[in-house]
Amino acid sequence: MEEDWSEGSIYSGDPARDELVKDAMGKIGPGKPVVIINLLRFREDADYQGLTHALASSIHTGEPTPSASGEEAYFKRYIPAYNEQCQKWFGDEHGKGQKILCVSKGMLPLLNYGRVPEEQGDANYWHAAIVLQYPNFERAMEFQKSDAYWEAAYHRAAALEDNVAWVTQPMEAA
């Protein structure tokens, strides 16, 4: 599958991720609102030197970023910067509807089989969760490739040791 990284493309160039995006898009369909659920595991110390995303490294080539814990980089740097970039990106041009539905910290397991390595232990693996709603899947994926997103996600990438993301469709509660 040869997908491009150009403006307007929802694909990232990462074959494994792009296959998941393509599958989700086929099941959800274009133009429908989505909710993305992220489980987060923070680094002990944010790693700005270890960033490998080409767009992030091309955006942030200036002053070194002061040290911080992964949790601090996520909550105090990424979330405010993400909110600012979303307000710009999801304005009139791209359609309104993006919002953070929930940010949590202190994850405690109720049921989790198979995802977390046994030696890590479920109770200590995930540190937080964030639940986001987007006006549609295409705009969410386009945003995640934009310079606007990477102005904020630079801190996210430095903060996180691991994360999983699930996309779903919101429904009216009965």
Rank of each mutant, 00 (worst) to 15 (best):
A152P: 03
V167H: 02
K32T: 07
A148Y: 04
A123D: 14
L132T: 00
N38A: 04
G50Y: 13
M25W: 12
P64L: 09
G50W: 12
A173G: 10
L55C: 11
R43G: 05
T65N: 04
N38M: 00
W166L: 09
H94V: 11
G97I: 10
Q87C: 06
A173N: 06
N83Q: 13
G91Q: 12
A174R: 15
K99V: 15
L110I: 08
G70Q: 08
S146N: 03
L110Y: 00
Y78M: 09
N136W: 08
G31T: 11
Y134Q: 02
V35G: 01
V131K: 00
Q49F: 14
R17V: 14
R115D: 06
L20V: 12
I37C: 08
G13V: 01
H127E: 12
K105A: 10
A56K: 02
G31Q: 14
P15M: 09
G95N: 06
E118A: 15
Y74N: 00
A68V: 03
Y48P: 01
Q85C: 05
S104R: 00
A140C: 11
Y11M: 04
L40N: 01
S58R: 14
K27T: 03
D122C: 10
H94W: 13
H127P: 04
K99G: 15
H127A: 11
Q169T: 14
L111S: 14
L160R: 04
H94N: 15
L20Y: 09
I100H: 01
A153H: 03
P15I: 06
L132D: 00
P30T: 01
A158T: 01
H60T: 07
A81Y: 05
G29Y: 04
T65S: 01
L108N: 12
I36L: 15
M171K: 13
A123M: 14
M107Q: 06
A159C: 03
S69Q: 09
K76F: 02
F90S: 02
I100M: 03
V167C: 06
H127D: 15
A140Y: 10
P66Q: 13
Q120I: 08
L160H: 05
A54Y: 05
D14T: 10
I36R: 15
G95L: 09
D23V: 08
A140H: 09
P15N: 05
D14H: 15
R41F: 06
F143Y: 14
A157M: 12
D45L: 01
Y78H: 11
G29F: 01
A158C: 01
G70E: 10
